[in-house]
């Protein structure tokens, strides 16, 4: 009998939680008595960074990773920080289901000994601010924009003309209220979760970055499964992928409606202009992930 310890930082309703709970339910349904799972959510075992350490040493078996933490384990994952790497959700999904997904998974296995079970969807990032509707890169000029403290993400917005600032996510709301920052960039679901729309007047659907949920399993624990169980685990992970993609589509549509109803302007910017302005960023990110890898990735996505 297989025993799997699953853990996630978030609580019910969050995309990473949906990914892991769907995985658990699907696996229980298909494998029945062959597998027992323990499920720790709500940070009872620790935050995502703590869980990432535990899965590396095998103190837990499976966790979903939705933050920059993956790039800290394997610099190839910084490729996801390339703005407009994908033309949209559809292209990103197709790429992750195909060769690109396989290459990324193999890379994480090699660099961090973590087996990627599947890539779910956290969402696409948009820009919100309190100054003006952002239609072209020129509208970003001088905007004090909060980004996560990821060097590639900060560099990207510096290149686009904004003044990127770091704040921990928990401080962003007060930062926006007090004017320490003018805007920030996150998936719509995160904007809702942290009430950031209450301190903003414009949202621009730039969809500049696609963030996957990387569902990983400890490498040795994965290798210890027999072939039949490996197949069942992968199938269950696919169920998680479907659930998060569905959730992402539903919640994006609902949130755009909700934010508009709350009085925010939600605009579709000139993506072509942004893609052009983002060209120089590609070279910087190629330096991080190696130019060969960048070229290879772009070949697989086209």
């Amino acid at each position: 009998q297989t025993q799997l310890r699953l853990a996630v930082e978030t609580t019910s309703g969050d995309p990473t939680h949906v990914m892991l709970s769907t995985f658990r339910d699907a696996l229980q349904a298909s494998a029945g008595d062959q597998v027992t799972t323990t499920f720790n959510d709500g940070g009872s075992l620790g935050d995502e960074n703590a869980l990432a350490e535990m899965v590396r040493v095998g103190a837990v078996d499976v966790i979903p990773m939705g933050s920059d933490g993956v790039a800290a384990l394997d610099s190839h994952f910084s490729v996801f920080d390339t703005p407009f790497l994908f033309s949209g959700k559809e292209q990103a999904r197709a790429a992750l289901d195909g060769e690109f997904g396989d290459v990324m998974a193999a890379s994480l296995r090699e660099n961090a000994d973590l087996e990627v079970l599947a890539f779910g969807e956290l969402g696409v990032r948009v820009i919100s601010n309190s100054k003006r509707a952002i239609m072209t890169p020129a509208d970003l000029a001088g905007l004090k924009l909060r980004t996560p403290s990821s060097p590639t993400r900060m560099m990207a917005f510096q290149t686009l003309g904004a003044a990127p600032t770091n704040l921990p996510l928990g401080e962003v709301y007060m930062g926006l209220r007090q004017g320490v920052i003018d805007g920030q960039e996150n998936p719509l679901s995160v904007i809702k979760e942290f009430s950031l729309h209450e301190a903003q007047s414009h949202i621009s659907l730039t969809n500049h970055i696609y963030t996957p949920i990387t569902l990983v399993m400890n490498g040795a624990a994965y290798d210890a499964l027999d072939d039949d169980m490996k197949a069942q685990v992968r199938a269950a992970a696919e169920a998680g992928v479907e659930a998060t993609r569905q959730l992402s589509d539903d919640s994006d549509a609902a949130l755009v409606e909700e934010f508009r109803a709350a009085g925010l302007t939600v605009t579709e910017p000139d993506i072509a202009a942004f893609q052009k302005a983002a060209e120089p960023i590609r070279a910087h990110i190629a330096d991080v992930v190696t130019p060969e890898f960048m070229t290879r990735v772009e070949g697989m996505i086209q």
Binding site: G142, K144, S149, M154, A163, T165, N166
Partner: peptide, 14 residues
């Protein structure tokens, strides 16, 4: 740096 020159020094936080 952030207030006077609009250039915070995020490395200091690390």
């Amino acid at each position: 740096g952030r207030y006077l020159f609009a250039r915070p020094l995020p490395w200091t936080e690390e």
